[in-house]
Every structure is written in structure tokens, then in C-alpha cells.
């Protein structure tokens, strides 16, 4: 007797073909470039790669990138949660405008974003003379880099949370209030636990982007070696100077930070699988 095929099953050939295309695509565009970064970094062995990384300027670049991310990510986390909360749980005039505004950094080229800050804070800009008089350095210094990073990573947390919170509705918050909870208690005990996975994901994405941002930071930093060069800028600088091992070694650090971020996310998902399932079902 002929074995019956499941009604929802596709032909074997089609399955193999689609699978092969997917694997080839992922391999070619995601895995291979990542592997090449590490391969190039270690082209002359571990020694030169480590030397390149422990170079004074490289260390300064790593430190600067981490500092900028350490300031920008918490800022945008707080902002993103506030914005998503306001948008998802309340109705107010100008809501659509606010949503559009949040998306602005996604649609504006980072280079343009950088230039905007030059126009505002640069020597010929609006606040330029005032800043010069008071010896406040924004451009070509840490504040400028942080500003650029904050601008570019603005939407990540909010964008992740808004659909999630809209989807969850206001029922649980209303229940909490009717049970006597204050606004703060409602937020901490009901809203936050319900969004924590989306929030974590948003923060991780935001962090990855903050570390990797090139365009906007490039305009604002001034590329001063050892002083205002972030990791991506430093990679370019090394690459332009034909220091391929150095460039790829620093790039490998960047890639590793990204991988650690992903691993962290996977670990948390695995560790809290039960809780995750409980909050998704329903």
C-alpha cells in the first residue's frame, strides 16, 4: 500500500531546494564574513593580533566605544520604556507624530545626523560661540560621540516595546489599579515584568548598534587617534594604513562583543524558558 503523504507536507525536492538556498544564503552572507574577520586577524598568528589589540591606541578606542555605549544605552533604555509606555497605554494628541519622530533616526542617514550636530554645536553653529567662550567641548570629544550614538540608537528599545505593549493592552494595568496599586507599583510589578524580554532584546540590539555605529560618530569625532577614535573608526584607520592584521584584530573584538551579546541572550532564554513560555502563551 502506498504511504499517505501528510496534506501539509511539501515534496521532498522542494524541501531540499529551499533548505539548500537558505543554508547557502546564511553561510555566504552571515557566517563566511564573520569567519573571514577572525581568519584575517589571525593571518600572521596569535602574537601580532594580540599586539595590535593591546596597542595603546586600540585600547583607547575600545575604552571609548564601551564608554559611549555605557552612557547611550541606559539613556535610550529609559527613554524607550517611557515612550513606549506613553504610546501604548495612553491616548493623547500628537501620538502619531511622536511615533514618527521616534523613527526619524532610522530614516535619516547617520552622516546627516552627524552633520546636524555639527551645525548646532560646531564653531560656526548656533551654540558654537557660546561653547567656545565657556570652553565646553562637544564636537571632537566624548560628548559629541555620545550624542551621535544616542541619536542613532534612539529607536531600538522603543520600537521593540511599542508593538509588544500595544498587543498586551491595558487590562492588566487596569486590574492592578482597581486592586489598589499606585502608578509606580503598577509599572514595576505588572508592566515591567510583562515587557522584560522585549526590553532585554531591545537593549541588546541598541548596545550592538551603539558599539558599531560609524557614520554619525565619524562626522563628530574628528578621528583623533587614541583620543576620539571609537572601535569602528579605528578599524577604518588601521585598514587605510594597510595594517590589515591590526584592522581585523580590532574588528574581531567588535565581532566578539556582538557574539557575546547573542550568547548572553540565548543563555537567558534557555535559563528562563519556563517563565518565557508562561508569558507568551495565554
Amino acid at each position: 500500500m502506498k504511504k499517505l503523504r501528510k496534506p501539509t507536507e511539501d515534496p521532498l525536492l522542494l524541501k531540499l531546494l529551499l533548505g539548500a538556498i537558505a543554508i547557502a544564503f546564511v553561510g555566504l552572507f552571515l557566517v563566511l564574513p564573520l569567519a573571514v574577520v577572525f581568519q584575517e586577524a589571525l593571518a600572521k598568528g596569535l602574537g601580532p593580533a594580540l599586539t595590535a589589540i593591546s596597542d595603546e591606541d586600540s585600547v583607547a578606542a575600545i575604552r571609548l566605544s564601551l564608554t559611549a555605549a555605557a552612557i547611550a544605552v541606559p539613556l535610550n533604555t529609559v527613554f524607550g520604556v517611557c515612550a513606549a509606555w506613553a504610546i501604548a497605554k495612553f491616548d493623547f494628541p500628537g501620538k502619531t507624530f511622536l511615533v514618527t519622530l521616534i523613527d526619524l533616526p532610522f530614516s535619516v542617514s547617520p552622516v546627516v545626523a552627524g552633520l546636524i550636530y555639527v551645525l548646532v554645536f560646531g564653531a560656526q553653529g548656533w551654540f558654537g560661540p557660546y561653547l567656545l567662550d565657556h570652553d565646553i567641548h562637544i564636537l571632537f570629544a566624548l560628548p559629541g560621540i555620545v550624542l551621535a550614538t544616542v541619536f542613532v540608537t534612539f529607536p531600538f528599545v522603543a520600537r521593540e516595546l511599542i508593538p509588544l505593549m500595544v498587543d498586551q493592552g491595558r487590562d492588566e494595568e487596569e486590574a492592578a489599579v482597581s486592586l489598589g496599586a499606585s502608578g509606580f507599583q503598577t509599572f514595576c510589578r505588572v508592566t515591567l515584568p510583562n515587557i522584560k524580554w522585549g526590553l532585554l532584546y531591545g537593549v541588546l540590539l541598541c548596545n550592538a548598534r551603539a558599539l558599531g555605529e560609524f557614520g554619525a560618530v565619524s562626522v563628530l569625532s574628528g578621528h583623533i587617534r587614541g583620543l576620539t577614535n571609537t572601535m569602528p573608526l579605528h578599524v577604518q584607520l588601521l585598514y587605510d594604513n594597510y595594517d590589515y592584521v591590526g584592522a581585523f584584530a580590532v574588528a574581531a573584538i567588535l565581532a566578539m562583543l556582538a557574539l557575546v551579546t547573542l550568547a548572553l541572550k540565548t543563555l537567558l532564554e534557555w535559563r528562563y524558558a519556563d517563565e518565557l513560555a508562561a508569558s507568551h502563551r495565554h
Binding site: D171, A175, E275, S279, H282
Partner: peptide
């Protein structure tokens, strides 16, 4: 208040 869709705290 007892809500139509219960609105239990799912976490």
C-alpha cells in the same frame, strides 16, 4: 473588578 477576559497577571 472582574474583567471579561480576566486580565490575570500572566507572569
Amino acid at each position: 473588578f472582574v474583567f471579561q477576559q480576566y486580565a490575570l497577571f500572566k507572569h
